[in-house]
Amino acid sequence: MSNVTKQKVNVLVVEDEILLALDIKMLLTRLNYNVQEIVSSADKALNILDERAKEIDIMLIDIVLEGDKDGIEFARVIKKRYNIPFIFVSSYFDGNLIERAKSVNPYGYLLKPVNEKELLISIELALSNFSNQPPDKAISNKPWQGANTDTALQINDSLFLKKDQHFQRVTLDDILLLEADNNYTLIYSKSERFLYSTVLRKMEEKLPSGQFLRVHRSYVVNIQSVTGFEGNTLFIGEMRIPVSKQYREEVFRLFKAV
């Protein structure tokens, strides 16, 4: 297997209290998330997003910020320009503020001081809601009802796979194949394996059909990772993947046409 750098979930922290921001960064680092940047105002955050929005997976936004825009007004801009989930962080919990916050459909709401366990749960559920539902419907009066973090989250060109107690980003191109193991699914990336207590069919539904192909009742392969074939067998590096009779014609027609 080739050595591939593990990619962490990237977080943009928008917080004007520097000590609290550094505390949040420490918690996120301990939870194995990567803090892409800490900024104190909406304008500074927008400058970062204009340059590299694709590098940001989720944002933590203080409602009270430096500058002309507060966190809620900033969130309205995010909803219009970008497709990135965000969680509000605030010292306040009054009714009017909550109603304003709800109007922009956040993916979570954390009260200061931020607790490590609550932070972990909030990020996992925010990513889960963002992955599984349209952004404008992800948060209701009961935003996290039915969320399931024991699954792979497909966001843009990556899967967010659970590893220990955190999500790890794996690009679709880095996924080699999926293998069924009774009611579990093994996901092989270029650098490691992930085990999920989910049947293969459910995992297959999260993947783009133009790139991933069922070749056997126990295997789904990334067709871009196939390095060769012989008889009824595909090769992915040193791995040999059987192709069953019902998929044979479709599979080998595809590879012979390449």
Rank of each mutant, 00 (worst) to 15 (best):
L28N: 08
S128E: 15
L127V: 07
V221T: 10
E99D: 13
F229C: 00
S40W: 00
L46D: 07
K190R: 14
L31Q: 12
Y196E: 11
V221N: 12
G71V: 04
V251H: 00
R169T: 11
Y184T: 05
S103D: 08
E66N: 14
V243N: 07
A21S: 09
N83W: 01
Y92E: 13
V226D: 12
M203W: 06
I241M: 11
F235M: 13
L65R: 10
S189P: 08
K112W: 06
I87K: 08
Y82I: 01
H166F: 13
K25C: 06
S122R: 02
Y33N: 05
V39E: 04
S41P: 10
E17G: 01
V114Q: 00
K79P: 01
A257C: 00
L46Q: 08
L120R: 15
I84S: 02
L207P: 07
E73S: 15
T185L: 03
R217S: 11
P113Q: 05
S90P: 07
F93L: 11
T227A: 12
V4N: 07
K44Y: 03
I24T: 12
K112H: 06
S128A: 15
N141M: 09
H166M: 03
K69M: 15
L234Q: 03
L153F: 03
G146Q: 06
E37A: 14
S91F: 04
N96V: 08
L172K: 08
N115R: 08
V170N: 04
E250P: 00
F74D: 11
K69T: 05
S40T: 08
S2L: 13
Q211N: 12
L172I: 06
V220L: 03
V220Q: 00
N232E: 14
L178K: 05
Q133R: 13
M239G: 00
D181A: 13
V13T: 03
F255S: 06
T151V: 09
V77D: 10
F88T: 07
N156W: 07
N10P: 02
S2C: 02
R30M: 05
Y92V: 05
Q36G: 02
E116Q: 15
Q246A: 13
V170W: 04
H166I: 02
D164G: 00
S158E: 04
R253V: 00
N232I: 01
E205N: 10
I61A: 04
L234I: 02
M1T: 12
E55F: 05
I84E: 02
L125I: 03
E116N: 05
V39T: 12
Q36A: 14
K54R: 10
D94A: 03
I56M: 08
V114M: 00
M239V: 06
E249W: 01
Q168E: 15
G71D: 09
P135M: 08
K190E: 14
S90L: 09
N34S: 13
I123T: 06
T151K: 13
L65T: 06
V4D: 07
K80H: 05
I223F: 06
D181S: 14
L97F: 10
K206A: 08
F235L: 15
L46V: 11
R81Y: 10
D57W: 06
I38M: 09
S244E: 01
L207N: 04
I84T: 06
S90K: 09
I98G: 00
D68N: 15
G67D: 12
D173A: 14
S158H: 11
N148H: 10
M239P: 00
N183V: 06
L127D: 04
I155N: 08
N183C: 02
V114S: 01
D23V: 02
A101D: 11
F86Q: 01
E179W: 03
